[in-house]
């Protein structure tokens, strides 16, 4: 683009909008603005992914190793231990899908924390964002896309390992469940990224939450294997509510909203119930982090 700068257009370029035009157009459509800023922030994350793909590569390799290693760990377990006609591979795949999505979502706060530490977040905070939830939305879109890619790889690998393949409706339901768990955990992680003093603290929190939540869920073993106190904890763990319905889908091609998918210590819960609990978890987290997003940084 070759264009000479004449004093008049120099002035037009550098003058405040209020001088050049009669008045500042008042904000028109907050929904459109929210979408615009969310897409721009999402685009940034994808450009980063494209130019630094190692996170994605590691994120696909890791669950493959889980499948392989845990599968081999219980290879000689007695037949029928995990239920009639259920191999450990089939049992494990849903756990690995949910745990992988969960780990990715739990780490969602890290880039935001680094943005905060490098001052990049200030760029977002001094901008007239329609809502700071666009930062959460962008991260969720990014993490959910990664989680879908990972889940796809896991479902494929599990099928090759003999776990079978859910039908289209089943895959759709799995996607919905993965979405719900990723949304809540991503929001939680971003809330922490806004609240904690620095990335060291955030990594510490991720460290002490990640694996314990895995072991205190039904990802690796069914509730019936656990000590009673752990059963209680596992039944409070949101991961369990994502794993059990997916496991049910893997086991039953003819599932419905009313199908009982899990037996908690306090009663049986059907598919609809599990989804409601995940939704409630998401709503609670989004509500909780609201004051953190609004807070101005000191």
């Amino acid at each position: 683009m070759t264009q000479t700068i004449t004093p008049s257009n120099l002035k037009a370029t550098l003058s405040p909008k209020t001088i050049v035009r009669d008045r500042v157009e008042e904000s028109t459509n907050p929904v459109a603005e929210f979408i615009q800023e969310t897409l721009a922030l999402t685009k940034r994350l994808f450009i980063q992914l494209q130019r630094r793909p190692s996170t994605l590569i590691a994120g696909v390799i890791q669950p493959m190793m889980w499948l392989l290693l845990f599968g081999a760990l219980f290879y000689n377990a007695p037949q029928g231990l995990f239920g009639e006609e259920m191999s450990y591979g089939k049992f494990l795949a849903p756990g690995v899908i949910v745990f992988t999505a969960f780990s990715g979502a739990l780490n969602a706060g890290l880039p935001v924390m680094f943005d905060r530490e490098f001052g990049f977040l200030n760029r977002l905070l001094v901008a007239p964002l329609a809502s700071r939830f666009s930062i959460v939305a962008a991260s969720t879109i990014y993490i959910i896309s990664l989680a879908f890619l990972q889940s796809l790889a896991i479902v494929g690998a599990a099928a090759l390992l003999g776990a079978g393949l859910p039908n289209a409706a089943g895959l759709g339901a799995i996607a919905a469940i993965v979405f719900l768990i990723v949304l809540g955990v991503t929001a939680l992680s971003l809330g922490l990224a806004f609240a904690l003093p620095g990335h060291i603290e955030l990594i510490a929190v991720i460290f002490v939450t990640n694996l314990p939540l895995l072991f205190a869920s039904t990802a690796l073993a069914p509730l019936s294997f656990m000590a009673e106190w752990l059963q209680v904890i596992a039944s409070l763990n949101p991961l369990t509510y994502a794993i059990e319905p997916i496991r049910y889908i893997y086991l039953n091609n003819d599932w419905a909203i009313s199908s009982v998918v899990m037996e908690a210590p306090w009663g049986s819960i059907n598919f609809g119930g599990v989804l409601s609990i995940l939704l409630a978890f998401d709503a609670l987290v989004l509500l909780l982090i609201q004051p953190l997003l609004r807070r101005r940084f000191s």
Binding site: E37, Q48, P128
Partner: peptide, 25 residues
């Protein structure tokens, strides 16, 4: 314009400005 220039070093200059433009709608 902050004292410490915080740029996303993986973006190009133009990409950064495009992001900024979207943040200001």
């Amino acid at each position: 314009v902050a004292q410490e220039v915080a740029l996303d070093k993986i973006l190009t200059g133009r990409e950064l400005l495009e992001l900024q433009a979207a943040l200001y709608h």
